[in-house]
């Protein structure tokens, strides 16, 4: 469950400041939701607040139970660390055995030979598989997915989908994807962000028609929505 108590928030999209939430009180019960908004960049900002990654400027967000990282978000898995370093990091963070986690991930992904190399050297599909595979290891009460889920007809997709389906039973899912079929396959209701407010819409199909999903700039390789840069103070 996720609760918003008098939440107000501002943020910027492409350098333009917007009021993200205006005094929102909202209760999200257990269930499977497709996050829908007018623009994919708004979806991302809303997801950050929902997942407790960024506290709002005013008010409070309460999350009951464990919540995943935004699974599939490309920026999560990157850097000079190796795959095993990352597995160890996530395992320690969520209190699971790193060796077991490593076994699961290496068996699942198509190219386990990359895992002991720096992540920066991996092809994008290997990073994405790794991202999704690792998300299966710790069990969460709330799964947050911020990318299209694996759908190509591959061994990885089949195995991942089979295990993820089992993981999802009795859990909450918040899915932000630009693939309408996935939204219909995985979600029962729409979680709609519109005009600074959140509401639940039980008619998912009409919701998807009203808020047609499209990929964010980041997802089509045009950079991040916010103005964050990576220059170092150090030299």
């Amino acid at each position: 469950m996720i609760d918003f108590f008098s939440v107000s928030d501002r943020n910027s999209v492409f350098g333009r400041s917007i009021d993200l939430f205006e005094n929102v009180d909202f209760h999200l019960p257990r269930g499977r939701y497709a996050l829908l908004a007018r623009s994919p960049e708004q979806r991302r900002l809303v997801l950050d607040v929902l997942a407790g990654l960024r506290p709002p400027r005013a008010g409070h967000v309460s999350i009951s139970g464990s919540i995943s990282w935004p699974i599939g978000r490309s920026s999560v898995v990157r850097g000079r660390a190796t795959g095993y370093d990352f597995i160890t990091f996530v395992s320690e963070l969520y209190g699971v055995d790193a060796d077991q986690a490593g076994d699961i991930v290496t068996l699942l992904v198509s190219r386990p030979d990359y895992i002991d190399q720096p992540i920066d050297t991996w092809p994008p599909y290997v990073r994405q598989e790794f991202n999704f595979a690792l998300a299966l290891v710790p069990e969460f009460d709330i799964y947050v997915v911020d990318a299209p889920m694996p759908y190509e007809e591959t061994r990885f997709t089949r195995l991942w989908q089979a295990l993820f389906e089992e993981r999802l039973v009795g859990k909450t899912l918040i899915l932000s994807s630009y693939r309408p079929k996935q939204l219909l396959d995985y979600c029962a209701k729409g979680l709609v962000y519109e005009g600074g407010q959140l509401f639940i819409d039980h008619d998912l199909e009409s919701c998807i028609e009203r808020y047609p999903a499209r990929p964010a700039r980041e997802e089509i390789g045009l950079g991040n929505a916010d103005s964050g840069q990576y220059t170092e103070l150090d030299f």
Partner: peptide, 22 residues
């Protein structure tokens, strides 16, 4: 239930067991 190929059924079973242990 997502169907997997016969050759991957063993892997799926093993992964399920591993996840249960975790």
């Amino acid at each position: 239930t997502i169907s997997v190929s016969e050759e991957d059924e063993g892997d799926l079973l093993y992964l399920r067991q591993r996840l249960a242990v975790v």
